[in-house]
Design a protein around this nucleic acid. Structure first.
Length: 281
DNA sequence: AAACCCGCCTGTGCGC
DNA sequence: TGCGCACAGGCGGGTT
């Protein structure tokens, strides 16, 4: 579900909420989510203060003053929910369309609680290694909003690729944080057809693409992310970027750039791609 | 090495 | 109204 802008929005809300607070407990309601829970996860944070909430791609990292770090990924349907007395509040669950049976992890602080709820269980809560690394982070590409990410870097990495550019943008080892929505939206903004072979795009167009990615992600963060269905911020607020979609989920509708009914939906590696057949070449 | 395909799960919306 | 099916924002791992 959540891509970089949604994770960043949740990260900011979580940071406001828990930075400087100390853990009372981590309650594990299952022995696995996507993977088996790490041994000792339930005990590791007790009494420790949160010094920082960071993000790498679509992963959030909660740093503690005891040098331990928690790693959280929301998968497709994971949510972090603020709840001091939420756990008993049926109205809240109804309004937020949350089924409490999917409350897999409950982090309790002195005067706050954060619930990890994830119906599909594609997400995870884990610990970083003592040296701060983790095998899931080890091969991630650069942050798209960092300076090291640009058209020249893309050109170098894509030079020999015969895969379509859309599929490459979903590869977290190329660049970290882009998912299905923002891949389609960024390619539209850059005027590049999602089917184009990644190794067959001129440098100038890749420069445009890198800029389009940064622009799209930045605007989506400013809008609090995109809420198609279940995504919400920590305090339950939806994002608004879906109202700015140019192509995603708009098959058959009018392209806002060229004014024609040219928005198509195709499948690439089993996943939907949307593009304007007139604007994207 | 890159590309393809599958599996992991539940919930929803669609066509019949 | 009910039922079955396809599909959904992700990612790792196996095979070719």
């Amino acid at each position: 579900m959540p891509e970089l802008p949604e994770v960043e929005t949740v990260r900011r809300g979580l940071a406001d909420l828990i930075e400087g607070r100390s853990f009372k407990s981590i309650q594990l309601n299952r022995k696995d989510i996507r993977f088996p829970m790490r041994d000792g996860l339930g005990d590791v944070a007790r009494g420790q203060t949160v010094t920082h909430v960071g993000r790498r791609g679509k992963y959030m990292i909660i740093e503690l003053d005891g040098a331990k770090r928690l790693l959280i990924h929301l998968g497709m349907s994971g949510r972090l929910i603020l709840g001091a007395d939420v756990m008993a509040d049926e109205l809240f669950y109804q309004k937020q369309q949350i089924n409490p049976r999917h409350n897999h992890v409950i982090m309790t602080f002195n005067d706050a609680a954060v619930i990890y709820n994830d119906p599909r269980r594609f997400g995870m809560v884990d610990l970083l290694d003592p040296d701060g690394g983790h095998y899931l982070l080890a091969h991630l590409g650069p942050e798209p909003l960092a300076n090291e990410f640009d058209g020249h870097w893309l050109a170098q990495r894509l030079r020999f690729s015969k895969t379509s550019i859309k599929e490459k943008l979903l590869d977290q080892n190329l660049v970290a944080g882009i998912g299905n929505i923002y891949a389609s939206e960024s390619l539209h903004l850059a005027g590049i057809n999602p089917k184009r072979k990644a190794g067959n795009i001129a440098l100038a167009r890749l420069v445009n693409l890198a800029e389009a990615i940064r622009n799209t992600l930045q605007r989506a963060i400013e809008a609090g992310g995109s809420s198609l269905k279940d995504y919400r911020g920590v305090r339950g607020a939806p994002g608004y970027f879906q109202h700015q979609f140019n192509v995603y989920d708009r098959a058959g509708e009018m392209c806002r750039s060229c004014g024609k009914d040219n928005i198509r939906k195709i499948q690439q590696s089993g996943r939907a791609s949307y593009y304007c057949a007139a604007c994207q070449r």
